[in-house]
Design a protein around this nucleic acid. Structure first.
Lengths: 148, 148
DNA sequence: CGAATTTATTTGCAAAATGCAACAATATAT
DNA sequence: ATATATTGTTGCATTTTGCAAATAAATTCG
């Protein structure tokens, strides 16, 4: 049997690099963490700080500061929630949204290129496999926290 | 079709957390980067600094300092290569090896748990898929550098 | 040979990221 | 109303990062 950990290690490392490479858009330079933050804010409907920090496995204080930076850069908006004014709701500004979209397109372009080396059947198998894997990781009690 | 980027993003994030969680062994506390360094040194036969830094996509100066720390902690050994004394060869000390092994076991335990939610057939499909994916990523010219 | 160039690694430095502890502000419970 | 819990922010002190410059050892080439 394959060395499973090795496969994972290599795969995640590569995807990490891919992600990193995709972060330089125009003049704006986004760090890898920031791109993850973007991704989650974009995906969710006005999440709170804690929610995003938790999903990303980041310390809330580090996260708070990252958000402060992104707000200063005019990419993220922080809105206090009327029903509970302790909570801040996060969303992307127009420019932030633009950057998120650009990163997304860039990454998808790379992914397409990667999948172009497979048959359609292989591609579907791979995608289904990853989906299954995610589901099983979500079920797992031992690791990775719930996260979702 | 699935949102492929999303699948990748979630999967790698989860594996990253898994990796991070596995890094506290005994009294010794290993950071995530350090555990990647361990992994590569252990896997290769006396690699040079550059080789490992390159594979990990790390800046060589940051890497150099990380190695200095690991040497100080008595976990990594740096041996100058006789044929070319600019080059340092990296290896794990007994204690370093012990830690690498422990981390490995820990991660494999988690992976096993995750795979326990699948049938044997699914498991094999998933593993084969990741292998294929890695091969295709290696072929890709656009991203992730050669790495191997 | 010996100066110039290339290669591998290290250091200086300044910026960014991290995380714990303590704090402020708001909500909930008793 | 007071005590408790939750959400997010600061204040440090540490660690990590990466560019530019330095060192040190090969290699090239005149």
């Amino acid at each position: 049997m394959e060395n499973v950990r090795e496969l994972f290690q290599v795969m995640t490392r590569r995807f990490g690099l891919l992600n990193k490479n995709c972060c330089s858009i125009d003049a704006v330079d986004i760090s890898l963490v920031q791109s993850h933050i973007f991704y989650e804010i974009d995906k969710r409907e006005h999440p709170s700080m804690q929610q995003v920090a938790e999903v990303l496995g980041m310390d809330i204080t580090t996260f708070s500061r990252q958000i402060q930076n992104l707000v200063k850069m005019g990419l993220v908006k922080k809105t206090p929630l009327p029903e509970d004014r302790r909570i801040y709701t996060l969303s992307l500004t127009t420019e932030g949204k633009f950057i998120a979209t650009t990163i997304e397109r860039e990454i998808n372009r790379y992914l397409d290129e990667i999948f172009s080396h497979m048959t359609e059947f292989e591609k579907e198998t791979v995608i289904r496999s990853i989906k299954l894997l995610n589901e099983c990781m979500a079920k797992s009690t031992v690791c990775c926290k719930p996260l979702f």
